[in-house]
Write a protein that binds this DNA or RNA. Structure first.
Lengths: 220, 220
DNA sequence: TTTTGTATTCATGTATTCAATCTGAATTAT
DNA sequence: ATAATTCAGATTGAATACATGAATACAAAA
């Protein structure tokens, strides 16, 4: 057992975790909403045990608050959080890019390039769901390739938090194409084994994304 | 129930979590060591339930790896991790200091000053345990006062990871006094409401700590 | 009217039970 | 002798049972 219609979770705890996480980050569960263990267990048709374990994980990344003996409350992502995420990323994501420029193999760079080609492919097809997924994959791949456990941890976290707003940003006129081109320039610098340029271009890319986002949301 | 000789845990899960976390970060449990739920439960005299929940939390911060159906393995902090932590902190901890300079109340700055006074007090008494704790408290207070959920999350995490090496650093000749003075200069800039200077001085402080650390450990 | 005590209810905290899975040694087959 | 197989023991995964604590409603007292 343990795949639960959605598939590919190895156990129920992971399944519940993914499910709750998605619902919170998508805004399906709203800020301040109280979650009861039995309620979730009933909804997902599992016992309280995996629910409790999943809630503990979510508490660790501050997506819920666990009040002792009083249950869980949803903590969403605020505009202030988003503003800070982009500010932090503008400071450290360039570092990850520099590391990739220094250490990644040609094979790994080819993987990045494939992601970029796919992104362009889906943009041409106007398949915005896949486009969004591929745009995110470029960053996720980068986090793996930078060979730094700490950078990967932090950047993955931050990136996941802004999934929603990144999607909105990519739907604005011309931004997706610009994003692809910025990614490409980062990759070029990596292929040229120029860490400083890779860093600068990645930083600029993050700042551009933030600037674009500030047209949609009221941040900073 | 629920205080378990060590005191102040509100429930057994938190108690187990703190206990395991401490043992891992202090090197008491070594990298690669396999942990069984029943073994821990027996050692701490609790059932498997709170142990499982604690392990899920520890997995979230990558202090253990959970292999499905095969149990938990300890993941320590490597020298590479420490190197990266200081590099990341040198980039973003200044941002936190700048925020404090902008937003903290005079009362809050007084709290920081009290911590500094206490640090000096314990240094004069050569009470290195308390000294270490107070030196850390200055940073922890800063993370709370910067009023950024994301900065607080990340910096607290990173700071906890390097607890051991920070302790070692403070024991080297003259470093504790230098650290206090650097903290004081950061606070001065905050009191002067000069975010840029607070940032610069904090960044320098982090870099100094790293430089001092590199005399002990073989980092970068 | 406000406060305080108390019973009830509901949710969480923990232990226990049972099922599924993995590991490794003994056994069998090649 | 080596490889494949089987099976027992141990460990994790999940559900359920039991215990504890918090919140609410309501009654009695000030």
């Amino acid at each position: 057992m343990a795949t639960k219609e959605t598939g590919r979770s190895v156990n129920l705890t992971d399944f519940v975790y993914q499910e709750l996480r998605t619902r919170i980050l998508s805004g399906n569960y709203k800020e301040g909403e109280a979650l009861t263990e039995l309620g979730i267990a009933g909804e997902l048709d599992v016992s309280r045990t995996p629910v409790r374990e999943a809630l503990r994980q979510l508490e660790q990344e501050e997506l819920v608050e666990l009040r002792p003996n009083r249950g869980a409350v949803v903590k969403g992502i605020s505009l202030n959080d988003i503003r800070d995420i982009y500010e932090i990323r503008s400071l450290i994501e360039g570092l990850a890019a520099a590391r990739v420029a220094e250490q990644a193999t040609t094979e790994e760079m080819n993987q990045l390039e494939e992601t970029l080609d796919l992104t362009q492919f889906y943009l041409d097809r106007k398949d915005y769901e896949k486009l969004e997924s591929m745009d995110g994959r470029f960053h996720q791949q980068l986090y793996e390739l930078c060979r730094s456990r700490m950078l990967r941890r932090i950047l993955k976290d931050l990136h996941n938090y802004v999934g929603q707003s990144r999607g909105a940003s990519l739907k604005t006129e011309g931004r997706a194409q610009a994003s692809i081109e910025e990614h490409r320039r980062v990759l070029e610098a990596m292929r040229a084994r120029d860490p400083e340029q890779a860093k600068a271009r990645m930083t600029e890319h993050v700042l551009n994304t933030r600037a674009n986002l500030s047209k949609i949301y009221r941040i900073q």
